[in-house]
Design a protein around this nucleic acid. Sequence first.
RNA 1: GGCUCCUUGGUCAAGUGGUUAAGACACCGCCCUUUCACGGCGGCUACAGGGGUUCGAAUCCCCUAGGAGUCACCA
Length: 485
Amino acid sequence: MIRTRFAPSPTGYLHLGGLRTALYTYLFAKKNGGKFILRIEDTDQEREVEGAVELIFQSLRQAGLHYDEGPDVGGAFGPYIQTQRKALYLPYAKQLVDSGAAYPCFCTREALAERRAKAEAETPGQWKYDKHCLRMSKEEARRRMDSGESFVIRQNIPLTGTASFEDALYGHVEAPCDTLDDNVLIKADGLPTYNFANVIDDHLMGITHVMRGTEYLSSTPKYNLLYAAFGWEAPVYMHLSPVMKDAGRKLSKRYGDPSFEDLLAQGYVRDAIINFIALLGWSPGDEREFFTLPELVEAFDVKGLSKAPAIFNTEKLVWFNHEYISRMDFEDYLQMATPWFDKALAGKNMDYRRLAQLMHTRTEVFDRVPDQVRFLAEVPEYDLDIYTHKKMKTDPEISLQVLELARPLLAALPNFAEETVKDALMQLAEAQELKTGQVMWPVRIALSGLASTPGGTTEIAYLLGQAESLRRIDAGMARLREGGR
RNA sequence: GGCUCCUUGGUCAAGUGGUUAAGACACCGCCCUUUCACGGCGGCUACAGGGGUUCGAAUCCCCUAGGAGUCACCA
């Protein structure tokens, strides 16, 4: 039985790199009929952010990545929060001490800092723990531990040889032992470090496949030494390349890059984000590009994972989002768009249903909607130049003539249905031997003040209504007369 | 700096010794059209560099360069 886990630290929102790791981990498990487990790695009490655990639950739920076992859903391998497993780790560490694979260390931070500074002065960048406490007798070590003195437990890395592991993506990875440090396994507060906790918990929880970021790639050989010391079988590792902001920098909240929650709030739809993220660093091998989550499960294959870092390209996300919104059921669109319409049009008597029809295929990201429809609330400042359009064969002079002719015609209409307005303007064009565009363009500009709008002249006229339309045409004529002088 | 890993167009990427080196986003042009968008058609741009191996290399080997990750009682 395949068992995978997503093991975030509760330090805040779920960032996009984390979301992708979670997604791939989920996909791999589901593709192979296995279990996807959520484990909270909160052994660093100082960095923990209040409420972050709930944020992780919420984000995963919103992403649709349902875990089979986890803190809030239970399971046979709990608890799934590491601080609640605290008592488990020390006995395993002691087992390693007994076998010589680890040892207690009583060096104070101050003493360490001092020796380190001295060593750095001679050979910069070469510092490793000097195995000072390894030379201590077992008896003394036991006595000092029993006396309540503060201590940590360190991994005893061999002085020679190499440590290695097989990565499902990167292949054989190995590192010379003499470049590896004797990292702390159990901290002075009794909690394990990541180095130790992930090994113990992955084993205890029966994890068969571990997917995680490449930041762990270079320390994984050390973890394998631990598995070997216990005589345990290590899981299969797949290290995932980072998601980059640009060629030189990882995506990170520190620099204001958006989290999953942020994107949702900006009006990106869940499925578009998932689809886009899935394709960032993974290829299905064929030319499909639209995938629902179940389709991703079906298509997912480790072979399609890329080893090189991928740059997060917002343009492409926007494109996916536009596609997903366009394909969305109209009623769903109307519902989602309404609060965004309200941001610009609150209080206006506006046919949102008609507006939504016009906006449905023109919405890229919802947070851009207010700006797109704001002209319906008020005509923006505009330059008279936009009355000039080469292809429409219009200029301010013709525009003024058209508006002067159209004004009484529109004022006389019994209603302002789109067809009514259209017929009137088309007849005007015919009667004056003008091109359709020569009539439509000036009227639309007067109505909107914009060179491009969602919907054309008649749709906008309808949305605005007769009174407001006439008012705007009057204002447009006034401006044209003024500008002509 | 040591160690580890990576390197196909601006971006995401297919490609695993023989291809006219796919496709998508972006960009540009044309068409459609009462604007924009949509849609249709077309175009631009790539195997980091240098050595090998081979009849033949984006694909295998070596070197160089560039980039990333890591070197915590953080994960």
